[in-house]
Amino acid sequence: MTTTSKNKDNQNIQTVNYQYIEQLLDRYWKCETTLEEEQILRSFFSQVDVPASLKPYATLFAYEATQQHETTLGSDFEQRIMDAIESETDKQQAADIKHIQPLKFTWSHRLAPLLKAAAVVAVVITAGNISERTLQTNSVGIADDDMTANDTYIMKEDISAKIHIIDQNKSEAMACTDSIQNQNGAGTSSPTPLDD
C-alpha cells in the first residue's frame, strides 16, 4: 500500500468520524444523547484538531471537559472543614455537659410518696363514713315506708284496748270512791248536836 492511499484511508476515517460527531452533536442539542455519547463529544472537542465546521462548539465542550477534573479548592480547605467540625463537636459536648445538671431532691420531692399515700387513706376513710351514714338513713326510711294500713289498724286496736282498760279501771275507782263516801255519809247523817 502506497503512502497516498494510506492518507486517503485516514481522511475517509476522519470524514466518517466527523459525520458521526455531527450526528451526535445534533442529538446533543435535542437532549437525546446518553451520558457516554456526551463524554465522546467532550473527548473529541478536547483534541487540538477540530474541523472548522465544528469549531464554534469546541470551546463549550473543552470547557466542560476541563471543569470535570478541575480542583479549585485549596488543599487547606479540607483541613479547615475538619477543624471547624472538631471545634463544633467540642462546643456541642461542652453544651451537653452544661445541660446535664445534678438531680436536686427537695423536701417536697422526698415527701411526695408519703403525702400521696396519706391522701389516698383520707379519701378511703371519708368514703367509708359517707357510705355508712347513707346505709343507716336508708334502713330507717325503709321501716317508715313499709308500715301498712293493717299495721296502723292493729296499733289503733291496741291503743283502743288500752284506753278501754284505763276506762274500766277509772269506773272501778269511781265506784270504790262512791262506796267510801256513802259509808262516811251514814255515819254523819245524824250527828250529835254539840252541847253548848
Binding site: 478536547s46 463549550l60 478541575e70 479549585t72
Partner: peptide
Amino acid sequence: APAPDDQLISRQQHDLARQLI
C-alpha cells in the same frame, strides 16, 4: 478564577464558556 489547562482551552475561551453558562 484558576488558569485552565492551556493545552485544551485558552484562558479567554475558558472565561467565555463560563460566562455564557
